[in-house]
């Protein structure tokens, strides 16, 4: 017994190393798997406020481009207003419309921390639980999809970017309903990979890809990108497609957090069906 203690004491350096190392690996694995409210990430108030100041400076540098993007989006939305349609009927009556109810609402947020150069990238936004942000909400920008909310603190939230090894988004062609799964191989922040599109589907270079209506996270039809090229894949039943992402991840400053008001209803129903199916 005494010898054992002596052995442990003599190797205390190695033992401390192994202890701390397993602690780090535990953190690392837990961070990849679960959502957490933790002081150890950039939703932490100190880190958040430092990043906030920095983003104010960098935002100023990109002000011109951001303004252009926002005004382009404004123009597109203005075109959808009732005022911009020519009224064909001469009499216009207002009807309290109960045939439609609102499904999505949007929370505007500012990006205060962002990366594109790592294998797993995150963004930090300046909106948190105080503003009604919850984990698993979708995040889009004026040009396309961005990612999914991961952790939320009172004033900040972190977003798992599309540029992350665990990000998988279902995408479909704008002109037909064939859908596949979009992921990122870690190389170029402007290019993603689309898999699971069957061989018989016909498409052209430059075709638009949008989100599907199957996910409860993103609204249907949000722009994702365009087909860049399709590599002929010997064998296999699927196309191997690379996609030009429409969101410029390295230069992103204003985003919208998507609040799906009917998400819990859909998820509850689906999990109920699944659990009944198991019986």
């Amino acid at each position: 017994m005494r010898n054992l203690f002596l052995l442990l004491w003599r190797n205390n350096f190695t033992i401390l190393f192994l202890l701390l190392q397993s602690l780090s690996i535990y953190f690392l694995i837990r961070n990849n798997r679960f959502q957490q409210v933790s002081v150890f990430n950039s939703t932490n108030a100190v880190v958040g406020s430092i990043m906030g100041v920095v983003s104010e400076v960098t935002e100023y540098i990109n002000l011109k481009e951001n303004n252009e993007n926002l005004s382009r989006e404004n123009a597109r939305l203005k075109a959808l207003l009732p005022e911009s349609y020519y009224e064909n009927r001469s009499v216009r009556t207002m009807v309290a419309d109960s045939s439609r109810s609102q499904k999505y609402s949007y929370i505007a947020a500012r990006v205060i921390n962002n990366s594109v150069n790592k294998r797993n990238n995150f963004l930090t936004l300046d909106k948190g639980s105080l503003h009604g942000v919850h984990p698993d909400m979708g995040v889009i920008s004026s040009t396309g999809i961005v990612g999914i909310v991961k952790d939320v603190s009172e004033h900040y939230c972190t977003v798992m970017s599309l540029l992350h090894k665990n990000s998988k988004v279902s995408a479909r062609f704008n002109h037909n309903n064939y859908f596949g799964s979009l992921s990122w191989d870690g190389d170029d922040p402007r290019i993603a990979q689309l898999s699971e599109i069957p061989k018989h589907v016909v498409f052209k270079i430059g075709d638009t890809l949008v989100t599907t209506r199957y996910s409860a996270i993103f609204p249907e039809g949000v722009m994702i990108g365009t087909v860049r090229k399709s590599n002929p894949d010997m064998g296999g039943n699927f196309h191997d497609i690379t996609v030009n992402l429409s969101t410029e991840f390295s230069n992103i400053s204003h985003v919208y957090i998507v609040d799906n008001l009917m998400k819990s209803e859909q998820n509850d129903l689906e999990s109920k069906t699944e659990s009944e199916d198991d019986k």
Binding site: L23, Y26, L28, N31, F122
Partner: peptide, 28 residues
């Protein structure tokens, strides 16, 4: 040295949302 390395790594991790990653590399 190990303890300092661990906390240095954690600090950098906090800013990059990669908790444990830099801590582990710094420990080695």
């Amino acid at each position: 040295l190990l303890i300092i390395a661990f906390f240095t790594g954690l600090t950098v991790d906090m800013f990059g949302n990669s908790i444990g990653l830099h801590a582990s590399a710094c420990l080695l």
